[in-house]
Design a protein around this nucleic acid. Structure first.
Length: 293
DNA sequence: AACTGGTTCAACCGCACTCGT
DNA sequence: TACGAGTGCGGTTGAACCAGT
């Protein structure tokens, strides 16, 4: 005998929730609290199954939810946590106040995956996509000669990238801890202070300029020859020079409680001492209730 | 304006886990 | 220990929306 369904599906409504249904569910939860979900639809006068009610509440109606896209710092946190935890979305969500597992899962699948792939990083393993085998390299060369528009010329396949990551200086690594809100893994992203998910550098291989310590071996070489990276090499990623004089810059706009807005000229330093959106929502819960009623 | 293909995200489904009996 | 009910979780779906032609 099979398992009983979570609810009697006959006569139950499915699909998007109407405003009236939302109102009923909110009224019920605020009056009675979260109790047995199986009983909620009956008691609240809803033609939904308990599971559907729970999902609607936890993913959409809870007053402490943040709305809108994930901030840069949240995205980075998701990537770091995913590197540690894998697809355990609820565990990841528990580290991001006001975000649901469903929301994070969706954001991962629609935004972050693409960004990582564009950067040449495998979203599953968080490792650099491996350089092509000899046979693949031959095929790629063939395509580049006889079919220059073939996608094999994208940055994801460049063997340069793995080298560039290992060459981030110790100073840059130590700087990265200034904005990383949690203990980091040794993924590329957690080590790179240059990473900003909304500003993913769409760099091409020929945009990666590497100054080798032994400059005599690389002088006047073509871009492709820069893949020869010496241990002492330093990096200069064109397009990453954001810090123009007198420009303001900051990390983690969405979590600006206590974060400093830095001004390049050193004299003007603006400190923001605001509590974040999640805290505000918690404080404003009573007014939120009133708005709904 | 109409069509088409791609993207997004709320909601669903089924399995796994926990807990009480 | 075995079983069933309730709940949580992650993968998947499909309607709505958007951009390009």
């Amino acid at each position: 005998m099979g398992r009983q369904p979570c609810c009697d599906k006959v006569g139950l409504k499915k699909g998007p929730w109407a405003a009236e249904e939302d109102k009923k569910l909110i009224n019920f939860i605020l009056t009675n609290g979260q109790c047995c979900w199986r009983a909620v639809p009956k008691l609240a006068g809803l033609l939904r199954c308990g599971k559907s009610c729970r999902l609607r509440w936890t993913n959409y109606l809870r007053p402490d939810l943040k709305r809108g896209l994930l901030s840069e710092s949240e995205e980075k946190m998701v990537i770091d946590l995913h590197a540690k935890l894998g697809n355990r979305w609820s565990k990841i969500a528990s580290q991001l106040p006001g975000r649901t597992d469903n929301e994070i899962k969706n954001h991962w699948n629609t935004h972050i995956k693409k960004k990582l792939r564009k950067m040449g990083i495998d979203p599953l393993t968080h490792k650099i996509i491996s350089p092509p085998t000899e046979q693949q390299q031959k095929e790629q060369n063939y395509e580049q000669i006889f079919n220059p528009h073939h996608p094999s010329s994208t940055v994801a396949n460049t063997p340069c990238l793995e080298s560039t990551i290992s060459e981030i200086t110790e100073e840059e690594k130590s700087n990265s801890s200034a904005f990383n809100p949690i203990d980091t893994t040794d993924t590329f992203l957690s080590k790179s202070p240059l990473f900003c998910t909304d500003e993913v550098p769409m760099i091409q291989p020929d945009e990666i300029i590497i100054h080798c310590a032994d400059s005599s071996s690389t002088s006047s070489s073509s871009p492709s020859s820069s893949s020869c990276v010496k241990p002492e090499a330093t990096l200069n990623l064109s397009g990453m020079e954001w810090l123009e004089s007198n420009n303001m810059y900051f990390w983690g706009m969405d979590e600006i409680n206590g974060w400093d807005l830095m001004s390049d000229d050193g004299d003007r330093k603006l400190t923001v001492d605001a509590f974040n959106q999640y805290q505000r929502m918690t404080f404003d819960q009573d007014s939120w209730k009133l708005e709904l009623m």
